[in-house]
Computed example of a mutant assay.
Amino acid sequence: MYREGPAGVAGAVLWSSSAPAQPRPVRVLPDGCLDLLWSSRAGLLVAGPDRTAYLNQSAPAEDWVGLRLPPGVGPAVFGIPAVELRDRRVPLADLWGARATRALADRAADAAVSRPAGSPPGGAAAAGLGTPGADGVGAVLVAEAVRRLRACGGPDPLGRRVSAALAAGATVAETAARVGLDARSLLRHSRHLYGYGPKTLARILRMRRALALARSGVSLAEVATRAGYADQAHLTREVRALAGVAPTALLTD
């Protein structure tokens, strides 16, 4: 079972999932985001930005709560360039140290049992994750992200500007001009903010835009035209390269 909703901070999304007794691998598509994760089995983890789909294999009955930070926000929360986390899942302690991570893990563990009485509204509660435990863990993750964003002065505004332009279909050259950077500077900033260059981010965001159109009922031929692919065959090749399967497989999953 999977649920998600707005986290109420920096455009982030809070999500939760519970694996069945016999879980199957779950295909997680690249999105340019970094996630702060809590697992009932593995504890606190960080998921870096993926270049291709990641197959996640949960343990039986494993519960997950995640705070998905939109493109460009993760480095401000974790205090590390996104490129250093690219295609990786790492223990949070590797980034924040054992002491800080243990304190956060203890708060999450307490919240997992039951959402603390008198906890503030918003955050996980607004997302409606389905159980008091998931709501409580989500609130803990959101509160920590808010605290760290305030301490560093917030995310780099360039992250939202670049990702918004690329998500809307602007070319890399058009995006660089809009934000006032040359190609080399845009590449350097993009690797820090997203984990990869603007061309890769543009491909990923275009794929996600295309899949959203297809899931709304638009034919794949029309999706290819509207999302900026040369034709449907080009769409299929790009989705297969990034997701590992053809778009039809994703739409019927």
Rank of each mutant, 00 (worst) to 15 (best):
L213C: 07
A53C: 03
G244V: 04
A112R: 10
L55A: 12
L36M: 11
G154M: 12
V162F: 06
A249P: 01
R226F: 05
R150H: 12
G133Q: 06
Y54N: 10
T131G: 04
A168I: 02
Y194I: 00
P116D: 12
P247A: 02
L213S: 05
R88K: 14
A143L: 00
R178L: 13
G136Y: 08
L235M: 09
N56Q: 14
R209G: 10
L92C: 06
R41P: 05
Y194K: 02
P30G: 05
G97F: 04
A241H: 07
S119K: 05
S219N: 09
T175I: 04
L34Q: 15
S216A: 15
R147I: 07
D182F: 01
L104D: 06
L186V: 12
D231C: 04
W38G: 07
P157T: 04
E84D: 15
L181D: 03
A124S: 13
A47G: 15
L55M: 13
A221G: 13
A168T: 12
G217H: 10
R203T: 00
V13P: 05
R160K: 05
A221C: 05
D63T: 15
E238A: 12
A105M: 06
A168D: 15
A109G: 14
V146I: 09
P120K: 11
R102I: 00
D31W: 11
G136M: 08
R203L: 06
G153Y: 01
L211Y: 14
L166W: 05
A233D: 15
G5I: 02
F78V: 08
L193I: 08
V9F: 04
E62L: 11
P6G: 12
G128C: 03
R188V: 15
